[in-house]
């Protein structure tokens, strides 16, 4: 459950520092919006496709991960074709697909902890301004990962209680007790965090 989309591997792209990958993506996403020449967009798309497919993902998985977005792009491209003509539609498709493939490649080659380290660095300026604490982000992230399975267990229990009492399973009667039970834990969890001295004020 909630397994990272990272794929074990040792390709050059795996070894590239996270910061370089993210800056590349950001630069590409800005730059490509100023380009509508297919002579540039098609080779860019082919390059990112090769990059993505060379990462060692099984084919099914590789297509499964981007299938939903590719579908959304296809719909949007059809609309663009209808309103703005074929060239615009093709440019949009190759531009967005190139970005999506590059982004998916970064996701597949970067571990959660590498991302977290980078986020902590990026948040340093905010921390220095006193707006937030970088350590809070990893604490919050840990809490989510810790409590999602707990909520799923509770959901199963509530469903069983419904069945035992012969009640039909409805979103309201499921979600309301679940949300209340989950949020009620907040007080004791917060107290425990303070008691263990995680957040030095």
């Amino acid at each position: 459950m909630l397994r990272s989309l990272y794929i074990e591997g040792n390709t050059p792209f795996h070894r590239l520092p996270v910061r370089v990958k993210l800056i590349t993506l950001m630069t590409a996403s800005i730059a490509l919006f100023f380009v509508s020449s297919l002579q540039i967009l098609v080779p860019t798309f082919v390059t990112t496709l090769c990059l993505y497919l060379a990462l060692g993902l099984p084919w099914r998985e590789a297509f499964g991960r981007i299938g939903w977005i590719a579908f959304a792009i296809a719909i949007v491209a059809l609309a663009t074709w209808y309103f703005n003509g074929l060239h615009e539609a093709l440019a949009l498709t190759f531009r967005l697909m190139a970005l999506v493939l590059l982004a998916a490649a970064i996701t597949a080659t970067t571990t959660i902890s590498a991302f977290m380290d980078e986020i902590t660095v990026m948040l340093q300026p905010l921390e220095r301004l006193g707006l937030m604490r970088a350590a809070d982000v990893s604490l919050a992230l840990g809490l989510v990962l810790r409590f999602v399975p707990e909520i799923l267990d509770r959901y199963e229990n509530i469903r069983e209680a419904h069945r035992a009492r012969g009640l039909p399973i409805r979103p309201l009667t499921l979600f309301v007790p679940l949300i209340i039970l989950t949020l009620k834990d907040a007080d004791t969890i917060a107290m425990a965090i303070d008691a263990r001295g995680f957040r030095r004020q």
Binding site: G142, L145, R146, T188, A192, F198
Partner: peptide, 27 residues
């Protein structure tokens, strides 16, 4: 808080990181 440690009635609430090792290290 550093001098006196508290173990809560429902210790599940006290363990706040997903993996045992991570939880102890986080403190």
């Amino acid at each position: 808080l550093g001098e006196a440690g508290f173990i809560f009635q429902n210790p599940q609430h006290q363990l706040i990181m997903p993996i045992v090792r991570e939880d102890i290290a986080f403190g």
